[in-house]
Amino acid sequence: MPKIILTVRLLMVLLAVPALGQLMGLRAPSTVSAGSSFSITTTGSGPATFYLLGPSHVVKQTIQLGQDLPISGSDVGASGSYQAVACDSVGCTSTAFYVLPSSPARLSFLVHPSRVPVSAGNAINATALVYDRFDNTVLAPTPVKFQFSSSGAAPYTRSLATARGIAWLQLGSSSKQGPLQVVASVGETAEPRVIQQVASEACGLRMQAASSSRSVRLQTDPIRDCSGNPVPDGTVVSFTKIDDAGRSTVDTPIKKGVARAQFAVSGRARISVACGVVLGNEISIGGEP
């Protein structure tokens, strides 16, 4: 009797071995490059429903188990974690794999600010974010070349490697006003940006006065910053007169490099000039200078 039972059990095991070979299963590579076609190996037999679930895409299709399942590169454009799932009438099985970013192909380049005073240290921030052609952040360190060029100065280049897809730098503006072009490039991809370097605060602000019997005409010397750049037209210059009648101020924009104003005066007066935070000379009218 025990022999019969043993024989039956053995027979059952032997019958089950081929069935075990038919168990439904999925095998995918652990990592795939974004946009690359590949295959998922399936085991088992018969029809099943296959699902591919990624960060931005879902595929659902009927498959025959036991065959290799081709996955199109267009189904794995977004990098990240994917789940491949197969379900038949008995149940479901799944496997996970990563889609990794492909090679660098795109740059997002941010430069701040768009206008900057000359000779300002670390005033310009440039940040480059490196992506592949599917807009995935390129995780591998990637050299980004920053080229700087402005009129009257020799161009120069700095190269930085990205960390987690980002390369950034700070730099100071030059002493000459005018456009500063910054080009960030990765391989064949380049993104240019232009920063306007404008004159800084006025430097050595001075005015001259021409008095008549009842008024005084004031005119500044050409207004420049400390690097010799003309302060832009439109910048407001304030002339302030203090006399027996009290204080009065005239705000006037720079035109063609100079600012002008006229005051009515009676008796002694003191007139001062200022541009932004910079004070110029002071003139006394009707008395000792």
């Binding site: 429903t49 699902y51 679930l53 659902k60 789940q83 799932v85 379900c87 479901c92 799944s94 941010l110 701040h112 600010p113 921030n125 940040t127 974010l129 987690r164 980002i166 950034w168 700070q170």
Partner: peptide, 27 residues
């Protein structure tokens, strides 16, 4: 970023994910 325009984070997330086709749990 120095201009305050971007912030990059790395998140270790503990998440249980369940996928459903209709009412059926598929993974």
């Amino acid at each position: 970023s120095p201009d305050g325009g971007e912030m990059q984070l790395v998140d270790q997330a503990q998440i249980e994910v369940q996928g459903f086709d209709g009412q059926k749990t598929i993974y």
